[in-house]
């Protein structure tokens, strides 16, 4: 019973977030995740990161120390800054997901000046 319950647990991954002049950089610890099992969504200023994790040991494994459980990851952030969502970059390496979220730059608009010669 215990094992079944633990399999359904979802864990909140640890995150570091820094802001640079033109972007945000987010690092998330997702140990055990494979790059194709990570799902990222950005919608309406909300960033959601999910990763599906398969059990690594058989159900009947006899642990003599069990300090952590293995399960899916999920975390959601609200970003109060306009992000250029088409330019979000994601890179996953050695259990760490690095996301670069560029701030949307106000586009300099070219204003046509019409000169009326009266």
């Amino acid at each position: 019973m215990q094992a079944t319950l633990e399999q359904k647990k979802t864990y909140t991954p640890h995150a570091d977030i820094v802001e640079r002049e033109n972007d945000f950089v987010l690092y998330l610890d997702l140990p055990g995740a494979k790059s194709d099992s990570i799902d990222l969504q950005y919608h309406d200023e909300t960033l959601t990161i999910e990763a599906a994790i398969e059990p690594r040991q058989a159900d009947e494994t006899k642990y003599f120390a069990r300090e952590y459980g293995i399960g899916n990851y999920r975390r959601t952030f609200r970003i109060h800054e306009t992000i250029d969502d088409e330019k979000i970059e994601a890179r996953y390496e050695q259990g760490v997901l690095k996301l670069t979220l560029p701030k949307k730059q106000a586009q300099p608009k070219k204003i046509q000046v019409q000169v009326h010669h009266g």
Partner: peptide, 25 residues
Amino acid sequence: PRFPLVNLWEDDDNLYAEAELPGFS
């Protein structure tokens, strides 16, 4: 700090230890 967290288990031939160490080589 208690890091990393570790799971330990065994079978007839071996002991096994697993630890979550993201970002490490």
